[in-house]
C-alpha cells in the first residue's frame, strides 16, 4: 500500500485535492495511529493541511442574518495546546480549554487540532461535550461552497459525520458567551496522561442576578454512539439555584439518558453511574464560573477529579 501526500499551501489547493478524493491530514494523531492499529488503512491519497495558516486563527466574527450574535471563530487547525493556553478561551470558553488541556500529552496537544478532534467523531472525544453544550457549529467547505452545520447534526455515529467526502472542516463557530455564562468539562480518567475519557460531561450555564439558572446545557462523553446532548434540563433547572438537590436531579437524568457500552475500560453500569457524577460536577463548576469564580484549567486537576484526586489532596486543593 502506497500513499501519495500533497502538502497544501493554499486552502483552494487542499479543497481541489479533496474534490479528487484525497483525505485531509493535520497532526496524524488519529489517522496515522488508526492505520497502524488496524482501524482503517492509511488512505492512498492524502492532503496535508498543517501549513494553512488561515485555518490557525482564533477570533470573533459577526453573526449571520438570522442571528446577529457575534460568534467565536476557532480555525480547524488550531491545536489543543493553543486552545488551553489562549487567554480568551480560558476565560470565556473555559469548557473547551478544560477539554483540550486533558487531551493526550504535550506532543499530542501540539499537533492535534480541534478540527481533527471534531471530524474524527469519536464518542469519547474530549472537546465534543463542551462544544455541544455551548451550541457550536462546524464550517464545512468544498470546491462548490461552504455550509455551517450544528455539531448535533454533524455527528451521525462512532467515527461518522454528515460531511461529504469532499468537505473540509475549516472552522468551529461558537455563539458568543454573553456576560455571566460559564462552562466546564470534566471526565473520569484512570491516569493523567495519554488517556481517553472513560466518561465525561460538558456544561454551559447562564445565571440570573439572584443566582438561579437562566439557561443551561449539558452534553455527555463516551456513553453513546455520539456525544449526547441531555434533554429535559429546563424543567429541572430554570429558575432554581444549582444546589445539591438540582445537581443530583441532573445526575439522575444523565444516567437515565446515557446508553453506554461495556468495554475494556468500564462496564455499561459503571459508565451509567459515573456519567451522572461527571454531569453534576461539570454543571457545578460551570455554575461557579458563571458566578465569577476562577477555577484553573482544567477542572479535573483543579478540583481533583479522577486520577488527579490524590495529587490534589496532597496539595490541599481537593474539595
Amino acid at each position: 500500500m502506497t500513499t501519495h501526500l500533497l502538502v497544501a499551501t493554499t486552502l483552494d489547493e487542499a479543497l481541489a485535492a479533496m474534490a479528487n478524493g484525497a483525505r485531509p491530514i493535520a497532526g496524524g494523531t488519529d489517522l496515522v495511529v488508526g492505520a497502524r492499529v488496524g482501524k482503517a488503512p492509511l488512505p492512498t491519497e492524502l492532503v496535508a493541511i498543517d501549513r494553512l495558516d488561515e485555518l490557525d486563527i482564533v477570533g470573533m466574527v459577526p453573526g449571520g442574518s438570522d442571528d446577529p450574535t457575534p460568534l467565536l471563530f476557532v480555525g480547524a487547525m488550531v491545536s489543543h495546546a493553543t486552545i488551553m493556553n489562549h487567554p480568551l478561551l480560558a476565560a470565556s470558553y473555559s469548557g473547551l480549554a478544560d477539554a483540550s488541556a486533558l487531551v493526550g500529552s504535550p506532543s499530542t496537544r501540539n499537533v492535534g487540532t480541534i478540527g481533527g478532534n471534531v471530524m474524527n467523531a469519536s464518542p469519547a472525544m474530549d472537546t465534543g461535550a463542551p462544544l455541544l453544550a455551548m451550541g457550536a457549529m462546524a464550517v464545512l467547505q468544498s470546491v462548490s461552497g461552504s455550509r455551517t452545520v450544528p455539531l448535533a447534526e454533524l455527528w451521525t455515529g462512532p467515527g461518522t459525520t454528515s460531511a461529504g467526502p469532499d468537505e473540509l472542516c475549516v472552522a468551529i463557530l461558537i455563539p458568543r458567551r454573553m456576560g455571566e455564562e460559564g462552562s466546564a468539562y470534566v471526565r473520569l480518567e484512570y491516569r493523567r496522561a495519554m488517556e481517553i475519557a472513560v466518561v465525561g460531561a460538558g456544561a454551559a450555564v447562564t445565571l440570573n442576578d439572584d443566582g438561579t439558572v437562566a439557561k443551561a446545557a449539558v452534553a455527555l462523553t463516551a456513553v453513546g454512539p455520539t456525544i449526547l446532548a441531555l434533554t429535559g434540563l429546563e424543567e429541572l433547572l430554570i429558575g432554581t439555584p444549582l444546589d445539591d438537590l438540582s445537581l443530583s436531579a441532573v445526575a439522575m437524568l444523565a444516567s437515565e439518558q446515557a446508553s453506554p457500552i461495556s468495554d475494556l475500560r468500564a462496564s455499561d453500569k459503571y459508565r451509567r453511574h459515573t456519567v451522572g457524577v461527571m454531569a453534576k460536577r461539570a454543571l457545578e463548576a460551570a455554575g461557579r464560573r458563571a458566578a465569577g469564580e476562577t477555577i484553573a484549567i482544567p477542572v479535573n486537576r483543579a478540583e481533583g477529579i479522577g486520577a488527579a484526586r490524590n495529587a490534589a489532596a496532597q496539595n490541599g486543593a481537593a474539595k
Partner: peptide
C-alpha cells in the same frame, strides 16, 4: 502507537511522536 514517547523528536522546537507523524509533512 503514539503512547510511549520513545520516538519523541522536536519539529520546529515542539515535541512530536515521530512514529505517527508523516515524514513528508
Amino acid at each position: 502507537d503514539c503512547e510511549c514517547g520513545a520516538c519523541m523528536v522536536l519539529v520546529d522546537g515542539q515535541p512530536v511522536n515521530s512514529c505517527s507523524y508523516l515524514a513528508a509533512q
